[in-house]
């Protein structure tokens, strides 16, 4: 390499260096530390005792973790597909230049800026059987209130609805961005090709926003597999663990029971699961795309 090129290389590293350092310190180092801690019987205050893979063995045989895993999986399946579909439909409907569309875009995005505490507070008011909004509505129809937050059959759907309401904004924005990058003239060409609205949607719009769809699904899956705030604040993981999610369990084990080693092992398992799921999604979609010329 010539002197100038080498200098350029140095400058490049100097620009990227600070960020890489922070990234390594905040993400990579704790990841590796966590791996190490998970191989120990560790408590929150510094005691460590090497146990090898015993924490992982315990995790795989823990029925409470199994229940948390099932809950989390159910929640993710209940949230991600409807969220994607609804966000896409809303983005299609709001992808206009009218004033009303602009106002509605702001409205749908606004729930995202609320913190999880406010969101769960709002939904508690809506869902509680004691004079909550839904209960009052059911009462007006002459029906008994439904205990959304305390009946094992209803808690997971209740969490799903709360999360859906909260999370709509970001996927809508992503879809809007993707839709607006589709060149307008191919819709005109499709119109001249006699394509009806459903055909246009299925064969023009969807394939054009394929990558955006993938992004939304990947991000949301990773996010919903880690649901924590809604479960802790709305139902406390109850009743009887019916709405306990994996991250809530990790929180309880680490900060409630002080079993840091076990909690870290569960966290590593969760990390592996999220990694596997998102890579699988990526591979499934990208393998159909050919190289560009």
């Amino acid at each position: 390499m010539t002197g100038a090129a080498r200098r350029d290389g140095w400058v490049g590293y100097a620009f990227v260096g600070p960020f890489l350092l922070v990234y390594a310190a905040i993400l990579i180092v704790p990841l590796l530390m966590g791996l190490w801690i998970s191989l120990n019987n560790a408590d929150l205050f510094g005691r460590r005792e090497w146990v090898g893979l015993a924490n992982y063995a315990q995790a795989l045989g823990d029925p409470v973790l199994g229940q948390a895993f099932a809950n989390t999986l159910t929640l993710t399946l209940l949230i991600v597909p409807p969220l994607t579909v609804i966000a896409l439909l809303l983005a299609l409907a709001l992808n206009r230049a009218t004033r009303l569309a602009a106002i509605l875009r702001g409205v749908f995005f606004s729930s995202l800026v609320l913190s999880v505490t406010i969101v769960t507070l709002i939904w508690r008011f809506i869902l509680t059987p004691d004079a909550g909004l839904v209960a009052v509505g059911l009462g007006a129809l002459g029906r008994a209130p439904v205990p959304f937050l305390s009946d094992p059959a209803y808690v997971i759907p209740a969490l799903a609805v709360t999360t859906l309401w909260w999370s709509l904004g970001f996927p809508i924005m992503l879809f809007l961005a993707g839709l607006q990058q589709v060149p307008h003239d191919i819709y005109e060409a499709a119109a001249l090709d006699g394509a009806g609205r459903w055909t246009v949607f299925r064969r023009i719009t969807l394939p054009s926003i394929r990558r955006t769809l993938l992004l939304v699904v990947m991000l949301q899956t990773a996010a919903q597999l880690q649901i924590f705030g809604q479960a802790q604040l709305l139902t406390g993981g109850g009743p009887g663990g019916a709405s306990r999610t994996i991250v809530l369990y990790i929180f309880e084990v680490s900060f409630g029971r002080w079993e840091l080693g076990y909690a870290t092992a569960i966290a590593e398992l969760l990390f592996g699961m999220i990694l596997a799921v998102t890579l699988l999604q990526y591979w499934l979609v990208i393998r159909h795309e050919e190289q560009r010329a």
Binding site: E188, A190, D193
Partner: peptide, 21 residues
């Protein structure tokens, strides 16, 4: 009539080919 029902074909200035097909 709708564009597709007019018996007309158009060649667009930037071709407007469907990129994923």
């Amino acid at each position: 009539l709708a564009p597709g029902a007019r018996g007309i074909a158009m060649v667009f200035q930037h071709y407007a080919l469907y990129p994923h097909m």
